[in-house]
Amino acid sequence: MKSLVVYHSKNSGAAKSILFLKKRNAFSFQKISKETTIFNFFRLILLFIRALFIKNIILNGIAVIANPNIQKVLKVLPNKKIILYWHEGEYHWNQTLKYFKIKTSDIADFIASAHNICDSQRVKEWLSHAFLPNRQPDVLYECIDVSCTIGFHSKSTTNLDHINVLAVGNLCTRKGFDDFLKIAEQSSNKINFKWAGKNVEYDLKRKDRVKEINENWGYNKVEVLGFSNHPSKLYSECDVFFLPSIDEPFGIVYLEALLYGKFVIASPNSGFSELLKNKPNLGYVYTDLVDLVSFIDNRLLEKISQNDYRKERHLFAKSHGVDNFHENLTRLIAKYENATPL
């Protein structure tokens, strides 16, 4: 049975995985943005018409789940299986409430009456505590396009005298840019740091901080690259991937880096960190910055110089490809179709 996926924007991180399913016949898609515009009004009408003929409706991401206009449409559509796919946690939830000018109580019953899927255990724990104390949501991890393997080499090309550490993400407080600079400042002169992503919060203070670190070391130890249309090239050229996010519901970029055989250093505040448990050859989850500095000084070289580990990382990432994601989502939908009403 076909399912209708409602998403906010193709440029949203929340839509990245599920939009891979556009090529699959079992799903159709409807974009509904947050803005109140004439164009979006007609999208809502189209959503209503399309939803009349489809039983399963997947609301993908918090910008769709909390949209009051979408909820108004769904209220007049009886006998629908509403599935909420969460890619965000408390931080994004509070930001979304402010944007739509609604309260948690306005939407709590809607969430409790739907089937809920989370993209990590981290998100599941937050959602269960906030809305579903007596019912556990399902977990469906994000996926990547595993066909994009240009640049993967099973043998290491690392020059241990010049190690390149890469971060990919919006340059902002939440993604951990300040901690990124702290680690860069304390690491040896063999290790260079590059940040690629939109310069969302790259203010004068942070620019001066980068300049100060580079002047103290006598070379460009830290480079801010800005947004890149070709992250695959950056992944293939780096030696280590490191994103010290303060709040990361999942972190699909870690998977993308692993696809290129790169060792990843994951924030303990990321949903992805739970996938690295008992997998020391794939990456490292630090407890705090002191622990991370010690790891970089004493153990990092060993991890990035072993060729066998590169293949293991690549295969792990491939196991989180679109085909497995599609299969797991289809299985969950079938379970909800056969479930008794909530």
Rank of each mutant, 00 (worst) to 15 (best):
I150G: 02
K22R: 11
W86Q: 09
E274A: 06
H87G: 10
N56Y: 01
L342V: 11
S113N: 15
D208G: 07
F20N: 13
Y260C: 05
F325V: 00
K211T: 14
Y141N: 12
A317N: 03
V293K: 09
N307C: 06
I49K: 03
T330H: 06
K207E: 13
G176I: 09
V165E: 00
L171W: 02
P268L: 13
D178G: 00
Y309Q: 07
E223N: 12
G197Y: 05
I82T: 06
Y99L: 13
P280E: 09
D106H: 13
T287S: 13
I117R: 04
A167E: 01
Q121M: 07
C143A: 14
N170V: 07
N269W: 12
N94F: 09
N220P: 03
F241C: 10
S120T: 11
D106N: 15
G321C: 06
G151S: 02
V64Q: 00
K335G: 07
C148Y: 08
E201A: 12
F110A: 10
C118H: 12
N79M: 00
I83L: 07
N69G: 01
I58W: 01
W93P: 04
E201L: 05
K194G: 00
L315R: 02
L97E: 04
N338P: 02
D138L: 14
S267A: 07
F180Y: 14
L97I: 08
A184Q: 03
V200F: 11
A317Y: 01
E237I: 11
Y91H: 12
V73Y: 06
E35L: 01
S188D: 10
E237W: 05
E142C: 15
Y260N: 13
S147N: 15
T330G: 06
V76W: 03
I54G: 03
K16H: 11
L44D: 10
K279S: 01
K103A: 14
A266K: 08
H8M: 08
P133C: 14
I304H: 10
H87E: 09
S245N: 03
H115P: 12
I70M: 01
I265N: 03
T287Y: 04
K194Q: 14
T36C: 01
F193V: 12
I246Y: 14
K23N: 07
I38N: 02
S188F: 11
A112S: 13
L225H: 05
D178M: 03
W217G: 00
A257G: 08
S17H: 05
K23D: 12
Y260E: 09
A167Y: 04
G218W: 13
F180I: 12
I304N: 09
L225I: 10
L21S: 04
T158V: 13
I304Y: 08
E248H: 06
K335F: 10
E237L: 11
E256Q: 14
L255R: 05
D291I: 08
L282C: 08
P244K: 07
V285E: 01
S228Y: 02
Q30G: 00
K22Q: 14
